[in-house]
Nucleic acid binder design. Sequence first.
DNA 1: AGATAAAATGATAGCGCAACCATTTTGACT
DNA 2: AGTCAAAATGGTTGCGCTATCATTTTATCT
Lengths: 333, 333
Amino acid sequence: MNKKPNLKDVAKVAGVSAITVSRVLSNPDKVSEKLRAKVEQAVHEIGYIRNHAASALASRRSGVIAVIIPSLSNIVFNDVLQGIYSAVKQHHLQVVLGDCHYSPLEEEKLIATLLSQSPEGFILTGTDQTDYARKLLKQSGIPIVQLMELSDSPIDMNIGFSHFNAGVDITNHLLQKGYRKLGFLGARMDTRTQQRLAGFKKAIADFHQPCQSYVVTTTQSSSIRLGGQLLQAVMAESQGQCDAVFCCNDDLALGALFESKRMNLKVPSDIAICGFNDLEASALVEPAITSVASPRFEMGQQAVELLMSAQGQDKHHRSPIDIGYRIVERAST
Amino acid sequence: MNKKPNLKDVAKVAGVSAITVSRVLSNPDKVSEKLRAKVEQAVHEIGYIRNHAASALASRRSGVIAVIIPSLSNIVFNDVLQGIYSAVKQHHLQVVLGDCHYSPLEEEKLIATLLSQSPEGFILTGTDQTDYARKLLKQSGIPIVQLMELSDSPIDMNIGFSHFNAGVDITNHLLQKGYRKLGFLGARMDTRTQQRLAGFKKAIADFHQPCQSYVVTTTQSSSIRLGGQLLQAVMAESQGQCDAVFCCNDDLALGALFESKRMNLKVPSDIAICGFNDLEASALVEPAITSVASPRFEMGQQAVELLMSAQGQDKHHRSPIDIGYRIVERAST
DNA sequence: AGATAAAATGATAGCGCAACCATTTTGACT
DNA sequence: AGTCAAAATGGTTGCGCTATCATTTTATCT
């Protein structure tokens, strides 16, 4: 096994100096067309691939951005990720991705690990990082974006929307439709879910008529199946009184919908169901499920753009960007 | 902004040499407890983070594995990815992930880019890489795993299952149930989908009784909505004769199921529906959908283990590993 | 043609770390 | 206490590349 070719090998084949090869790869317009062609030919011929570690070390630019999401299995972060990848492509960056499983401590470790890659930007989900994590991030001096929710005290930049407000709005939607015995079905209970629940409670507290609320939550991770179980739980707790449920996400809502059929409850006449995140399935089941839509793909894209535009700038503390949400009313309510 | 601390800074604070700090980070048991404690304290105090580029360059170990999947949005690869991440964690590796959008050319570019990270292993999806990509991969000398399907001529290692056989089996399942006018609904039409289709055709050709087949495919990417459209298309093409459909994945199958309700077709009496991949929703809709399950998470895990066990070994051309699949019969057929 | 600027190319040094080998310290034994 | 091996620690060097500056070539003008 002859060892991997390096710059010098290419230079020898092309009959130029090493530095010229380097330039062809990073600043092609600084090299005359003649040499460039020769070099490119040589590169392709011997299958040369630049050593990123050496390049990053010498240039002090890693061409990498770090991303941490709380869960790979949650399709919601997948959408964000797709936005990130689509934007990253334009900028010739690589992504190093971490999954912190909703744990700030795991996130702290991941942040340290990912920072070792000298990323040129860092995208985080949510706002509950540990103090040490914040210290490391600030010290790194790179631009940082916190995603999904809005923060009063972002580490650096911030883009997301108010889960509290969305919770208020969707609950008011149910109240306006005449439902008065509202259930909240919550799984995982991460900060965003908690904010939705807080919105739910606030809307009910502020309502001008008497109404009842039943809150059923679990720290288990969300799934369709769990949605069915939680629906049973809330019907048990309310002794069958509950006439509408706000599910903290569409997985639960779908599970609740399927379960309601098995329980012979008509949707929305016996029970209304609404979800959160507006997954594709929610629009296509029968009846279609009311949900809260947000531009996740765009949020991911914008996060990358924010990072890139902040490159080098010393001050990039624009105020948090509210990307908004939209209640999508459908037949289930 | 004081620049990022390096090994020497830590060494100064801890009152030891730089190399000792290095050892504490990579070989803690080679350092006496006393010094180790001092160093760890210093590291934490000044928030030192090792420069991965320099470390990789000096040690010739990047601690990175490269992964390319054809689509971030397809939940199937998400499952594999989770397996990969879970295994990678044990080995203290980082993943660099690329999404080639089902394009061998994009994949070739990605392979070149990712190889520049000097990964210690490479995980690819499928078996249709370009010649140049194969050249680069072989030249890199690192262990490589091709995932998902089985290949006669793998680049290196291979783990997956036979989509052709699965297509045959599921089609036979429909035939055994008495269906004789079978539709195939296919989206994307990547190599694995094509193999499923080939299996479908083979089973029908080999069947000992006359039966009819209707193949409706599109290169559009798969979605639930598209499943509904394809069901309409196959009913149109068969002039309402089609009595069972094999959908190339569960998204389409769900869409077909929802659409069949709108079309007032009873499942499975008017039309049987089966899918592929066995997503959670397939088991929970009414009627539940027959599908083909495969251990995707485990496949991802095993891929990483294969890479790790092949480290350094010159020969790791074990024969392809068939991880198998399972037909999950449900009410929809 | 000669003068000057601009573009193209090259030589050298150093990015931060770990491999390698040298040296010092410690412990185990007679 | 003295000997030796083993463990712990340190010094030097080079990984492969690019920033910086120096030099050469080319283009543009009078």
